[in-house]
Design a protein around this nucleic acid. Structure first.
Lengths: 138, 138
DNA sequence: TTCTTGATTTAGACATCGTCCAAAGTGAAA
DNA sequence: TTTCACTTTGGACGATGTCTAAATCAAGAA
């Protein structure tokens, strides 16, 4: 079984068939599914799982820090299970495909105090946009 | 009249009362309204303006490069008329307030070729997140 | 000025994404 | 095995945004 389920159990998660299936769907290195995709894949294994449960479970995984939400401009949010390895995203503006990338540099350090307006800045998100090879060719 | 309307007319825009009002609402330095806020403010001056027109007009302004869309995680998109001055955003995770910021550094240069996966990368968007002074105090 | 015409606006239906709720079901502690 | 708080369910609901066909209008032509 995945480390993920172990960690979740350790945090007092009640382990239901539904949660197990959602976690299994998200198990992978470069997975960026939408909630509905997760639901479809989960339903392939557990046909009666409801949309609400998928949304609930994804929300919990995000709260627990096990999964990151990626908002891609108006489209449905995508869920990235690769939350334990710092990375940023490269998104195709045409088809919405997402790749994980690892830029150098430290953008947090690039924001001087006088540009923080008293905010307690806690994170930076860097999103690269462009066209993926397939869309560029088409 | 604003430069904006001049530029738009120069590009063959038909100047209607509705478009004028939307452009006026967006006239300002650090404005980040949602489409519905723009609609409400526009309707204060031109009561019969429709939502569809506001959406159409905002979409056109974005296409023309006069206004930038800012997606703030699931909430409604916001529209930033400050498109002619490169800048990034600092967003309060609690209340959604947006500030324009100007970090140093060049994140585009921070993405090595082997991390581009054949994409034609054209832009980078850096979003700082945290709590604004009001929300931090509350 | 008036006419003409293609661009623009409108209201409201529709689509998508996500949230909420009350009722029914269930994991797991005792 | 029993119990009960935690989960799930489905369907209504809400927010945001898109689309369409018919009515309207800006602005160039006459």
């Amino acid at each position: 079984m995945s480390d993920l389920l172990e960690r979740l159990r350790g945090r007092g998660w009640r382990l239901t068939a539904q949660r197990r299936v959602v976690a299994e769907v998200l198990d992978g290195e470069h997975v960026h599914y939408t909630a509905d995709e997760v639901h479809a894949l989960a339903a392939a294994r557990l046909p009666e799982i409801s949309r609400a449960t998928v949304y609930n479970t994804l929300g919990e995984l995000v709260s627990l820090g096990e999964v990151t939400e990626v908002s891609t401009d108006g489209r449905a949010k995508r869920y990235d299970p690769n939350a334990h390895h710092a990375h940023q995203h490269l998104i195709c503006g045409r088809c919405g495909t997402i790749r994980d990338v690892h830029p150098s540099g430290n953008p947090l350090a690039d924001l001087p105090a006088e540009e923080r307006f008293g905010f307690a800045v806690s994170e930076v998100e860097v999103t690269y946009r462009g066209l993926c090879p397939d869309c560029a060719a088409a």
